[in-house]
Computed example of a mutant assay.
Amino acid sequence: MRSLQQFLSDYGDSHQNPLNQWIHIVCVPAILISTLGLLWLVPLGSWLGLSGAAAEWLNGATVLGVLSGILYLRLSFWVFLLMVGWFAVSVWAIQSVQSAGWSLFWTSLIVWVVAWAVQVYGHKVEGKKPSFVEDLVFLLIGPIFVSIEFAAKLGLPVPHAQGAGGNTPAQNH
């Protein structure tokens, strides 16, 4: 498996245009949260005969969270912690949509479609295909990259997230 630095460097190769970077900073979290929202609706716990909170919390989103957590932990502990944070924000957003009485399905689907459409536009501006076309693992790398990219754009230090040449992804652009 590639190292975190290799993944970030490879991902950064197709995300050098500043407009495309900002599109990704907005759309990758939207895609992450809306994807988890859609997967939240896959009732694995109910299908397994569980009831109550166990049935509610054993769903497609939590299973994906655990499985992707294994990859994130293999990359580094700080990446794992970062993505636990993203998962927590996503669950909060999902619970908020449901508490507001909105349809989680339609809200997630609309956000998902719009965010992907804008991402496609960003890659048209970039002139390069999305990284996941070559390797689907990049779908899991995107949130890490944009977290680092956004922190770097804000001038925040990003320890342990050095890309090619010892620079953060934002500095590589």
Rank of each mutant, 00 (worst) to 15 (best):
A170L: 12
A170F: 11
G166S: 14
I144V: 08
P159R: 11
P159G: 11
H160V: 11
G155Q: 10
A161M: 08
G166D: 00
H160K: 14
H173R: 14
Q171D: 11
P169A: 00
N167C: 00
L154D: 10
T168G: 06
T168M: 03
V146L: 08
H173K: 12
K153E: 12
F145N: 04
G163K: 00
H173N: 12
N172V: 02
S147H: 13
F138T: 01
T168D: 01
G163Y: 02
V146S: 08
G165I: 00
L154R: 13
G155Y: 05
P157Y: 11
F145E: 03
S147Q: 07
K153Q: 07
G166A: 02
G163W: 01
V158Y: 11
I141V: 15
T168H: 09
G165D: 04
L156Q: 07
F138S: 02
P169Q: 07
P159L: 05
L156Y: 13
A151S: 13
A164S: 06
I144L: 08
P157V: 12
L156D: 13
Q171L: 12
N167F: 00
L154W: 06
H160T: 04
A164G: 10
G142Y: 09
N167M: 03
G155S: 05
L140T: 14
A164F: 03
E149W: 13
V146N: 04
T168K: 06
I144E: 00
A161G: 10
F145L: 15
F150T: 07
T168P: 00
F145K: 08
G155I: 04
I148N: 12
S147C: 02
T168V: 04
Q162F: 00
L140S: 06
F138D: 01
G155A: 12
G155P: 09
Q171H: 02
V158S: 11
H173L: 07
F150K: 09
L156F: 10
A152W: 10
N167Q: 11
Q162N: 10
F150A: 07
G142Q: 04
N167S: 04
P169I: 01
I144H: 00
P169M: 01
K153T: 03
G155N: 09
A170E: 03
G166V: 05
A161H: 09
G142P: 06
P169V: 02
A161S: 12
V146Y: 11
I148Y: 10
G163E: 01
T168N: 03
Q162K: 05
F150W: 13
K153D: 15
